[in-house]
Simulated scan of single mutants.
Amino acid sequence: MDLKPVLAITIGDASGIGPEICLKALQDESVYRSCKPVLIGDLNILSFYVERLKLPFQLNPITKISNAKFTPGVIDLFHLDTIDMNRFQFGEGNSMTGKAMVDYTKLAVDLALKGDVDAVIGGPHTKSAVEKAGIFFDGYPSLIAQLTNTKEEETFLMLVSDHFRVVNVTLHVPLQRVLELIKHPLVFKAIQASHYAGRMLGIHDPKIAVAGLNPHASEGGLYGQEEQFEIIPAITQAKEAGMDVKGPFGSDILFAEMGHYDIYLAMYHDQAHIPMKMKAFKQISALTIGTPILFSSIGHGSAPDIAGKGIADPSGLLKTIQLLCNVQSKKSDSYYK
């Protein structure tokens, strides 16, 4: 019996590099040795790249997983006819490509919820293109929460690169809003989600370090009150629940010395993303944690400046494919409890 996981991979914003890196990644036959990949996107866009890059691929449009061949050289594709080539231009995300990205994601999540695929990878998106379509979008985690009927306040983003893992308590919100959101219940839920995600990644008892919000983690209240009244009580609650968690630490020292803990908890977007992108910019996966499906996106954007030029690097997608295959092999039921 073939136990390799089935992975649905969306092309993301069709005007960006998503379609190109999907095809380039599937040139690597090692992908087929670890999983059964299927793309979700538009046939016209992928046909353009196959011809332009002179790739030895046969595109196999399918309407159900049982039609997939899962064979190197054959690209199994759920084709959604969403792109009008007369309105399409590489590097120019618009309402059409934004809506298409959401449609690809909806289909992929539906396949995962039905059990037709084991995991989903979302291709690089363009936030402005989605919002041009009249759809509020602040990143994949909240969209996946909505599509899986999961509470958004229990859904978080974990940046993963080899042994570095950083979870965002808040994500795409203004800093002023961060101050309003950093409350004891949210910080505790983020620690809890981090703990279960660590176990899902095969770490039996993950060691979690929590960053402070203020400079020097406020030095006992000198530079702010959030640590004393919100973050420390959440850490205490997590310890009482049996989790191995320490902090809060000043983020400058904590992230400068990454590697001592299994998972790091950051309070806001840049606090998480800057150290991770300095450590491993092209090797990051963006894992959504706290939802009932296994979903990750790629840790970089749609790169509109090089879209359609044939020079995009698929290494981030290859890393994400490897991550989800490894997670699927280790996945513990405890993550979903």
Rank of each mutant, 00 (worst) to 15 (best):
P19Y: 06
E230Q: 12
F249H: 09
D116P: 01
G73D: 02
A197C: 01
L254A: 09
I121N: 13
D76I: 08
I144N: 04
T71K: 14
G115V: 02
S315M: 15
P19T: 00
H273L: 15
I182C: 01
A190S: 06
L111S: 07
I263M: 01
L318S: 02
I121C: 11
G220T: 04
A307N: 11
T63L: 12
M200T: 02
M258Q: 04
E152V: 12
A217K: 11
L107P: 03
D76T: 05
F229D: 14
V6I: 15
S15P: 07
D116H: 13
I235R: 03
T105G: 12
F255V: 02
Y104E: 11
L143Y: 03
M200G: 12
M278C: 10
P275V: 02
G134L: 01
D305I: 01
P124N: 08
C35M: 11
I62N: 06
D42K: 07
G247W: 10
K239N: 08
I11K: 03
D13V: 08
H79E: 11
E29A: 12
D205Q: 12
G198P: 07
P292V: 03
N326W: 05
Y336M: 12
V38M: 11
H184A: 14
A280N: 11
M258N: 08
F229S: 13
P56K: 15
Y336P: 00
K330C: 07
V187R: 02
S302A: 09
S161L: 03
Q146E: 14
N168I: 00
T148V: 03
V187S: 06
P233M: 11
R52V: 06
L46P: 08
P37L: 03
H125D: 00
L46K: 01
V245G: 05
H125I: 14
P141W: 13
E51N: 12
G259R: 04
H269A: 05
H204I: 14
L111K: 10
P206G: 05
E154M: 09
I182V: 13
V74T: 14
H273S: 02
E152S: 13
P248Q: 08
M278T: 15
M276I: 09
Y104T: 03
G91M: 09
G18Y: 04
P56S: 15
I253T: 06
Q192M: 08
D84T: 05
N149V: 01
L318E: 11
L186V: 04
E51T: 03
Q58A: 15
D313G: 00
V245A: 08
G202V: 04
Q271L: 11
Y49R: 00
H273M: 05
G250Q: 04
E240R: 12
L171F: 12
G134E: 10
K239C: 11
G299V: 11
G139K: 00
G123H: 08
K183Y: 08
K309N: 03
S194Q: 09
A8F: 07
G242V: 09
R87N: 15
S142C: 00
Q237D: 12
D138I: 12
K319C: 13
K246V: 10
Y336H: 14
F70G: 08
I17V: 10
V160N: 07
K4Q: 12
Q225M: 15
